[in-house]
Design a protein around this nucleic acid. Structure first.
Lengths: 187, 187
DNA sequence: AATAATAAGTGATGTATATCACATCAGGAA
DNA sequence: TTCCTGATGTGATATACATCACTTATTATT
């Protein structure tokens, strides 16, 4: 299972077995069932998660109790309420399983030790953060330049598997349109 | 002028004079006049920029030649077409002066040397990338949860000075509404 | 198997926003 | 000055999308 993490890191930076043992010691494994919460809005955020298997949704609930999908997290993705995690404040979002899910967990303390103890890991996280930023920027550009139908088709093309795994109402919420509109777009 | 950079870095990580001299040696200074381009769509992106004074717009031009403001960059901000910069590909966006602007320039090569040569700088850039990501995520959430008027008011409250410095048509483009709609919102 | 809950499609209607057209005003260049 | 360009406001109209209401199909629960 933890072999997944090693491979994931190696895509960016090669690690010796010894180095990986060090990395490994900063993670713990947890399993969750569908519908379980890894993070609940209002609670402290203890971990940053690396998804080994399964699927999660990161949800922001607005003042009128409407839920918005901020992101999905599938195999090989990192997810958390990162703002709350880094600043050690309470969660403003929730993280919930859409399928049975297995994750590796890393506390902020372990994250910092990992970065200080092994410069390669700081490099690794820098690369992750950079491309995370670029991904968000692309999503913003897609908002600015495309209509709902184009955004829908772009997502379909980028993550076809997602459409097999989650109800369309959640896809709609991620795209920022109503489920009725999404239904009409796809027909 | 370069004192600005030192102060900016020190907000995150203290540097000795010697360390700062090392950092400094990886930047060059450039000045641009209003309407000049730092990056032109289609050209290679040689630098990542730190804004000392002035104001820039990062613009994405869509297939129907319509311009969209991806971001503004003011004093103390880092800006570039980061995807093109990191991957050394050609720019898909342009970066243009809205005012006379002075910047510090860093090549990808120097960026890498900075990170390898001084772990503090890798830490610094990791923090910048992380909070850059979080900023973009907040902007996405604001898209998902708010209407145009709310997004307008939120921006006004967050960056009141921007409204003194740029025409409202550009604010509209940043918010993703037409300039006519923005005009009606603000009245 | 029976019942309930969730997912998905679709019509009718209202609303926010884009688009087009035009008027006004300010600042810079000849 | 006079001319031009860019910025801003505002009416009229078109359009994309949300919302509400209802139906049908699928999946989960007892």
């Amino acid at each position: 299972m933890k072999a997944d993490l090693k491979e994931h890191i190696q895509k960016i930076i090669p690690l010796t077995d010894e180095e990986f043992a060090f990395v490994n010691s900063h993670f713990s494994t947890k399993k969750f069932k569908k519908h379980q919460f890894l993070i609940q809005e209002g609670d402290p955020v203890k971990y940053s998660y690396f998804v080994i298997s399964g699927l999660l949704k990161l949800v922001y609930t607005d003042s009128s109790a409407k839920q918005h999908i901020v992101s999905f997290a599938m195999e090989d993705w990192w997810e958390s309420d990162f703002y709350a995690f880094y600043t050690q404040t309470n969660a403003t979002m929730s993280l919930e399983c859409l399928e049975d899910t297995e994750v590796l967990c890393c506390t902020l303390d372990d994250y910092k030790k990992l970065c200080s103890g092994l410069q390669k890991m700081e490099r690794f996280f820098l690369e992750k953060a950079t491309f995370g930023f670029l991904g968000s920027q692309r999503r913003i550009i897609s908002w600015l330049t495309s209509n709902s139908k184009e955004r829908y088709e772009h997502l379909l093309q980028q993550y076809p598997s997602l459409f097999q795994r989650v109800p369309k109402s959640l896809i709609a919420s991620y795209l920022g349109v109503s489920r009725e509109t999404l239904s009409r777009l796809s027909s």
